[in-house]
């Protein structure tokens, strides 16, 4: 049965790389917006903070589970790469984890601890979100640079750290445009208007730097016919940015139409950027060092995970959708009753 699609040592690693990529993409979009909401915290008033948390409260936990799935798939499908990547990123991973701990518990503590402590937990929520976003961006930068640690790669990593944080704040702002109204919505539109320039700059900088530092990526992008097949990615991204800019100038509309547009457009934009990156790295799981075929687990083990995945993943999709339907519409106060 494992030979159904040809050599299992070929198709299973590709399948798992795709699954892992999918989890990372879903994670970046979903936790991206709730991390972004956290990063935007200092710009909001006290009552607005409650509303911002209310807009992500029912979702954040499941959003973060995609990170666990992504690192879990890396762990189970590509154990050799898992060790190499995570030991190379030891410190940023630790900072990210501390950030995730702080913001995760702050969700609960800020409303359950005595009122005078709320400010402190709000600070923990903001700083945790910021630490997580920055360290994820830093890791992305080092990963693009083939996990090499030199002053030049650190500068690049510092840039990706800032730009990923800006990217998260942007998608966070578009989420707030969708989920809120009134003053907070107007503020969110303003945040998104500011953030979009950072986003353009970030996408541009990473797209320029990647082929310059990696001859292999240069080769993959600028040879014929690849260049024509890849052309839709930057063209579509450019068009989306223009549409986003136009939409943000007109929002919020009086009847709240099109409030969904910036969020959806951001998801598409994140997806396009992700595909560009995935294309550039294939077939490597550790850039320039280890391919997915070399790093993969035994086909027997991958196959038994795949069977479960095919059954469970649609169910996860189903009940995740149910949660988003139940908590659709503008965010209101979070209550246990």
């Amino acid at each position: 049965m494992m030979d159904l699609f040809g050599d299992p040592a070929r198709w299973l690693p590709v399948t798992f790389a795709a699954l892992m990529g999918l989890s990372i993409l879903i994670y970046v979009v979903l936790d991206g917006f709730d991390l972004g909401v956290g990063v935007l915290f200092p710009f909001a008033g006290e009552a607005e903070k409650d509303r911002m948390v209310a807009s992500i409260g029912p979702f954040w936990d499941a959003n973060e589970t995609w990170l666990v799935l992504a690192v879990g798939l890396l762990l189970v499908a590509f154990p050799a790469a898992h060790g190499t990547i995570l030991t190379a990123l030891y410190l940023p991973v630790a900072i990210m984890l501390i950030g995730l701990i702080l913001r995760g518990v702050a969700f609960e503590f800020r409303v359950k601890a005595p009122l005078p402590h709320k400010g402190r937990w709000n600070f923990a929520f903001w700083s945790g979100s910021l630490m997580t976003s920055l360290s994820q961006g830093w890791m992305l930068g080092l990963y693009i640079m083939g996990l090499e640690q030199t002053p030049a790669t650190w500068v690049f990593a510092a840039l990706t750290a800032v730009f990923l944080t800006v990217g998260y704040s942007f998608i966070g702002a578009t989420w707030l445009i969708l989920k809120t109204d009134g003053d907070l919505q107007r503020k969110a539109v303003a945040w998104a208007r500011g953030g979009i320039w950072g986003l353009v700059l970030g996408l541009g900088a990473i797209s320029l730097a990647s082929p310059l530092v990696s001859p292999r990526i240069w080769q993959k992008w600028f040879s014929v016919p690849e260049i024509f097949l890849l052309a839709p990615l930057p063209i579509l991204s450019g068009a989306l940015v223009v549409l986003l800019w136009l939409a943000l100038r007109r929002l919020p509309t009086s009847d709240d139409s099109w409030a969904w547009f910036p969020f959806v457009a951001s998801i598409v934009l994140f997806t396009l950027a992700f595909f560009g990156m995935a294309y550039s790295f294939y077939p490597y799981v550790v850039p320039e060092q280890l391919t997915i075929y070399e790093a993969a687990s035994a086909p027997e083990s991958l196959f038994i995970i795949l069977i479960g995945t095919c059954i469970v993943l649609p169910m996860i999709g189903g009940y995740t959708a149910l949660a988003y339907v139940i908590f659709r519409g503008k965010a209101t106060e979070l209550r246990y009753d």
Partner: peptide
């Protein structure tokens, strides 16, 4: 992760705030 984490994380939202 697949049979437990997602199940509890998603339905926790409904259990806490969905009453």
């Amino acid at each position: 992760i697949m049979t437990a984490f997602f199940l509890e994380a998603v339905f926790l939202g409904i259990m806490l705030f969905g009453f």
